[in-house]
């Protein structure tokens, strides 16, 4: 049938399979974990996990079928048009950015995020906010000193004055 219509069948993406397998594992774990609970506690999660397992298995089987058809189609159509199936994404879309950002850009972005939240947990918000703002603007944003310092000082200062002193609201305080 595939051969007759010769419609392009996209290749299965490894990421999809991994996600489906991960979800399958989650549902299996949930099902097993639920066994130790009393009936009324486990009834709903068990039902749910069973449904989830069924969906995941069907999905994985679907991926298997898709992979098979893709190979059939690719053999017929030749290799040159292989990866054209993806729709044209405009360069502002999040899918495009995630798909095309280089490894270094990813590493840098994740490093900044890690630094921010680690610092938030360790040093608390009042130290993190000005320092991170300054560092990020200077290094990642290559902004001028004046702008960065003002931004950082104002953000940190206001946060400290209003939240810390004036209203005394709970903030991530760090471990010190």
């Amino acid at each position: 049938m595939v051969a007759r219509t010769a419609r392009p069948v996209p290749a299965v993406r490894a990421g999809d399979v991994v996600i489906a397998l991960f979800l399958l594992a989650v549902f299996v774990f949930a099902y097993l974990h639920a066994q130790e609970w009393p009936f009324r506690t486990r009834f709903f999660p068990e039902l749910l996990a069973a449904a989830g397992i069924a969906f995941a298995v069907i999905k994985l089987a679907g991926f298997g079928l898709q992979a098979y058809r893709h190979r059939q189609w690719a053999r017929q159509a030749g290799d040159e048009t292989d990866e054209q199936a993806d729709e044209q994404a405009d360069e502002h879309s999040i899918e495009y950015v995630f798909g095309t950002a280089g490894g270094r850009a990813w590493l840098a972005a994740l490093a900044w995020v890690t630094v921010f939240f680690t610092s938030l947990l360790v040093f608390g918000v009042f130290i993190t906010v000005p320092l991170f703002t300054l560092a990020y603007l200077k290094i990642a944003g290559s902004a001028g000193w004046l702008g960065s310092v003002i931004y950082a000082a104002v953000a940190g200062g206001l946060l400290w004055f209003v939240c810390g002193e004036l209203l005394a609201v709970p903030m991530p305080a760090g471990i010190f």
Binding site: V26, F27, A30, R40, F44, L48, A51, G52, F55
Partner: peptide, 28 residues
């Protein structure tokens, strides 16, 4: 649709985290 079902089932599991209102057992 199948991806949606899987995500929904996962979301429901997340919704069940916590003390269950029937027996008071903490789940997940």
């Amino acid at each position: 649709v199948l991806k949606g079902f899987l995500m929904a089932a996962f979301g429901m599991l997340v919704a069940l985290v916590g003390i269950d209102p029937q027996e008071g057992v903490p789940r997940f």
